[in-house]
């Protein structure tokens, strides 16, 4: 019995315990630091803001109006906010999603809304016009190109996110 008791000496026992406790403390400090360091990798790449709005087969090289709704919490109440976009494929087969909100005073523009200017977006309020790319036609009221939506494609589904200024703005 006494031999067995001496297999772990007092010094060894203290060494093991201190290393063990110290190890736990070090891990406790390091774990959050590691978590912070790799945090950007674990982020869900802002996917939560992106909404599936259409199937790719619905998109052609002709701008199509797409409507969807998002939930918005607005301080006082939560509401479903309607959203719209003009979506088409450009000559490189990239998806372009333009905001329909005129940069003049915020009316909705329509593709080919004016018969005398086919292949342009037209704002019925004050005759603002935009080329298909979304760039404003000079000498019409708007002074900036239409905003663009963030676009993401997953398989055959088109996701749209927030609006951002036009790439040529």
């Amino acid at each position: 019995m006494s031999e067995k008791r001496n297999q772990v000496s007092r010094r060894q026992f203290l060494n093991y315990t201190l290393t063990g406790v110290g190890g736990f403390m070090a891990a406790g400090m390091l774990a959050p630091m590691v978590r912070f360091a790799i945090d950007p990798v674990l982020k869900t790449s802002a996917q939560s803001d992106m909404v599936a709005v259409a199937d790719l087969s619905e998109i052609s090289d002709e701008p199509t109006r797409i409507d969807w709704t998002i939930d918005q919490v607005d301080g006082w109440y939560e509401s479903e906010v309607p959203k719209s976009a003009w979506v088409y494929k450009d000559e490189n087969d990239d998806i372009i999603a333009l905001s329909p909100v005129c940069k003049h005073l915020g009316c909705f523009v329509n593709w080919q809304g004016d018969e005398s200017h086919p292949d342009q977006f037209y704002c019925p309020c004050h005759d603002g016009r935009y080329y298909k790319s979304g760039v404003n036609v000079p000498n019409t009221p708007p002074e900036e190109p239409l905003d663009e939506f963030e676009v993401r494609i997953d398989g055959q589904t088109l996701y749209l996110g927030q609006t951002k200024p036009h790439r040529e703005a």
Binding site: P82, V101, C102, H104, L105, G106, C107, F108, C123, P124, C125, H126
Partner: peptide, 8 residues
Amino acid sequence: ERQFKGRM
């Protein structure tokens, strides 16, 4: 109103 915000 959403469609004609700038005029209505």
